[in-house]
Simulated scan of single mutants.
Amino acid sequence: MLSEKSTATVRATLPAVAAAIDTITERFYGRLFAAHPELLRDLFNRGNQAAGLQTRALAGSIAAFATHLVDHPEDRPHVMLSRIAHKHASLGVTADQYKVVHQHLFAAIGEVLGEAVTPEVADAWAEVYWLMANGLIAAETRLYEERGVLAGDVWREWTVAARVEETPDCATFRLRPADGAPAPAFRPGQYVSVQVELPDGARQIRQYSLRSAPGGELRSLTVKRVQGDPDGEVSGHLHARVREGDRLRVSAPYGDLVLAGDEVPLLLVSAGIGCTPMVSMLQGLAADGYRAPVTVAHADRSPAAHALREEHTALTGRLPDAAAHFWYEAPGPGHPADRTGLMDLTALPVLPGTRAYLCGPLPFMRAVRGQLLARGVPAADIHYEVFGPDLWLAQG
Rank of each mutant, 00 (worst) to 15 (best):
S280L: 11
R243K: 08
P15N: 02
R76T: 11
M343Q: 02
M1T: 07
E4V: 13
V93D: 01
D246E: 14
S212Q: 09
G232D: 08
K5S: 02
V79Y: 05
P77H: 01
L81K: 13
T316N: 13
Q195F: 07
A323D: 07
A122E: 13
S3A: 07
V164L: 10
P37C: 11
H237G: 11
Y357I: 00
S270T: 09
P361H: 09
H86Q: 03
A380C: 09
H239R: 08
P277G: 05
S220A: 12
P349H: 15
G114P: 11
E310W: 08
G376D: 12
L248H: 06
A287N: 11
P331R: 14
Y254T: 00
P293L: 05
G388V: 05
L218A: 12
I382M: 14
A271S: 06
A324K: 09
V350Q: 01
A305L: 12
P168G: 01
A116Q: 15
I84G: 05
T67M: 06
E233K: 12
A271P: 00
H325D: 04
V350D: 00
R83S: 10
D390W: 13
P293F: 01
G228S: 12
A260R: 11
H86D: 03
F387K: 04
G152Y: 07
A202T: 15
E111L: 13
D123C: 04
D42P: 10
G189K: 09
R203E: 03
T276G: 08
H102T: 06
E166L: 09
P214V: 14
Y328F: 15
H102S: 07
T167S: 08
L40F: 08
P352R: 13
E385Q: 13
M80D: 06
A126R: 15
Y98N: 07
V79Q: 06
Y129K: 08
G232Q: 10
R206C: 00
V386A: 05
I137C: 02
L393V: 03
H298L: 06
I24R: 08
E127D: 04
A185M: 06
M132V: 09
P336K: 00
A161S: 12
E140I: 02
G353Y: 10
V294S: 09
K99R: 15
L14K: 10
G317S: 00
P361L: 12
V196I: 10
H104P: 00
R56D: 01
Q49Y: 15
A299H: 12
R339K: 08
G152T: 02
A107V: 02
S61T: 07
L351S: 13
L372Y: 14
V242Y: 14
R225Y: 07
E329V: 13
V160L: 04
A252V: 01
S61D: 00
Q49F: 13
M132C: 03
G114K: 15
V294E: 10
R27P: 00
V164T: 14
A19N: 07
Q227K: 15
R156D: 04
K87N: 05
L358V: 14
T159G: 06
T9W: 04
D71L: 14
W392H: 11
H72N: 09
L282Q: 15
M132H: 03
E165W: 05
L266S: 13
V93N: 03
H325A: 00
L81D: 09
A138R: 10
Q54M: 04
V294K: 15
A124M: 08
H72Q: 12
T141Q: 09
A297K: 12
T141P: 02
G274L: 03
F106Q: 08
P177T: 00
P184D: 08
P333Q: 14
G52V: 13
P182Y: 00
V194N: 06
I109R: 01
